[in-house]
């Protein structure tokens, strides 16, 4: 794919005799916001370290900006920005000193450096904290400063590891909006490692769901939700006495994949969206007194849990 900025092909990695990544394949299109989802120990961090050239993969091929991260030139590396979970700032140094170091490392000319640092600090609303030691900052401020640090050299791709973990709601919203702004306005490709489903659903356009070093699912979020179009209906009846009758009916219908009755409400899962009409007909033909039917929208969380649980079910078997 010509428009691909990250390419991972058949990558495996073992650490201490344990397979951490197993045959990983995916591509990240240029300009997209890409999310890697997975529980702790799923291999997300190892994968990120491979993409940053910190760890060597055992087999397969990895390309970031068209180059192997291990043999990248300085110019290629200048196209990459990153914020790891440990923000990488020295708490004894001031905000300015911390960013100035990275500006030097990325080769920013001395005369440009100061203006660029001030511009970045202004962008993350920290311009009044330039001379304050980072140790006095809140977690949200450190995260914003890390983003300023990662963007100081105008990278083409930004890797973020759990960008909103441990932040208060205000800080979370700020970082989310900043990420979206970077993607829309600056056209930066953003790669996010996260286990926060809500965050990924709000920010990312494409995702990979990982578990135990394997890719369980990948694709565009909207498509995945559409493909996994198991429809869930919430049904309330006029008379509660009719629930046993409804239970008998639902048990006999082949297009009903699952159902449960809780506190005078029936939750009915259908195999697909088109079965809604069939169910409605069956309910009216059997004179079930319907009070209200509501369709519950599938979320990424439902999809994620169904995948992770399905996997656990296979493991038990």
């Amino acid at each position: 794919m010509e428009n691909t900025i990250i390419e991972v092909k058949h990558v495996t990695k073992s650490l201490g005799g344990h397979t951490v990544l197993s045959d990983i394949n995916f591509q990240v299109p240029n300009g997209s916001v890409f999310g890697i989802l997975g529980p702790n120990g799923s291999g997300k961090i190892t994968l990120l370290r491979i993409l940053l050239g910190l760890i060597v993969h055992d087999t397969g091929e990895v390309k970031v900006l068209g180059q192997n991260p291990l043999s990248m030139t300085r110019e290629d590396k200048n196209g990459i920005g990153f914020v790891l979970e440990d923000h990488g700032l020295n708490e004894r140094l001031t905000a300015y000193q911390n960013i100035d170091f990275f500006a030097q490392v990325y080769g920013l000319a001395k005369e440009k450096r100061r203006d660029r640092i001030l511009e970045m600090l202004d962008k993350v609303d920290l311009s009044s904290y330039i001379k304050k030691p980072v140790g006095t900052f809140s977690k949200g401020m450190k995260q914003r400063l890390s983003l300023a640090r990662a963007l100081i050299h105008e990278p083409r791709i930004l890797f973020l590891d759990e960008p909103t973990s441990n932040l208060d709601p205000e800080g979370t919203v700020y970082i989310r909006n900043l990420i979206l702004r970077l993607s829309r306005e600056a056209g930066i490709t953003i790669y996010i490692n996260s286990h926060d489903l809500d965050e990924v659903e709000r920010i990312c356009s494409r995702i990979v769901i990982m578990k135990h070093g394997n890719i369980m699912l990948q694709g565009v979020i909207a498509d995945l939700l559409r493909q996994n179009n198991q429809t869930t209906l919430e049904v309330k009846l006029e008379e509660n006495e009719s629930f046993p009758e409804l239970e008998n009916l639902l048990s006999s219908l082949s297009y009903v994949s699952n159902f449960k009755i809780e506190k005078e409400v029936a939750f009915i899962e259908l195999n697909d969206d088109s079965s809604r009409l069939l169910l409605f007909n069956a309910l009216t033909q059997n004179s079930i007194p319907i009070k209200e039917i509501t369709q519950i929208k599938n979320s990424l969380e439902d999809l994620y849990i169904s995948i992770v649980k399905e996997e656990e079910h296979h493991e038990v078997q």
């Binding site: 590396k77 440990d86 990325y106």
Partner: peptide
């Protein structure tokens, strides 16, 4: 020890240095 405590090493290693 300062690097370990501040956990800066990984970030520095990922730069072009």
């Amino acid at each position: 020890q300062d690097y370990m405590r501040q956990r800066c090493m990984e970030t520095i290693l990922a730069t072009p240095l």
